[in-house]
Design a binder for these strands. Structure first.
Length: 125
DNA sequence: ACAGTGACAACAT
DNA sequence: TATGTTGCCACTG
């Protein structure tokens, strides 16, 4: 039987769940890991959708705050509370966040998963 | 079926 | 540096 491939959203969540505390990744890198280097925008869209599912245990404990933009900057716009919340969550696990809401990717960037692990995620294993 | 919507990213001013 | 523009793409009603 062929394992059904999870939706892109599900694949994004699977990756984000594996970002270790104290590190960060970017929308674009996650998209690239999933083999879709130009679907970064959809990664942000997937994380945004979490706020509608936060009552569902299946989507609890997804460390969405460990995802920033390609410049290492917190990217939530028009939502000051969420933006500050992301900064606080990161600081709480030891990530330095500048007053301009930027993280030094040279220090905190998560290297990412091995391609074998990614293959499992993409194929729903 | 299809137009609208973003927590992006690269490039141009 | 700081904005603005353009291309992208999965998902939604």
């Amino acid at each position: 039987m062929t394992n059904k491939s999870p939706s892109y959203f599900e694949q994004v969540y699977a990756i984000v769940r594996k970002i270790p505390p104290g590190t960060v990744s970017s929308y674009g890198r996650i998209a690239a890991m999933l083999g879709r280097p130009r679907a970064a925008r959809a990664v942000g869209y997937a994380l945004n959708a979490l706020k509608d599912k936060h009552g569902d245990p299946q989507y609890a404990n997804i460390p969405w705050h460990r995802v920033v933009n390609s410049q290492g900057r917190i990217s939530i716009v028009n939502r000051e509370t969420s933006r500050n919340q992301q900064a606080e969550l990161l600081k709480a696990e030891g990530v330095q966040v500048t007053d301009r809401l930027t993280i030094d990717l040279d220090i905190y960037l998560w290297p990412g998963l091995h391609w074998l692990e990614i293959d499992d995620i993409v194929h729903g294993r």
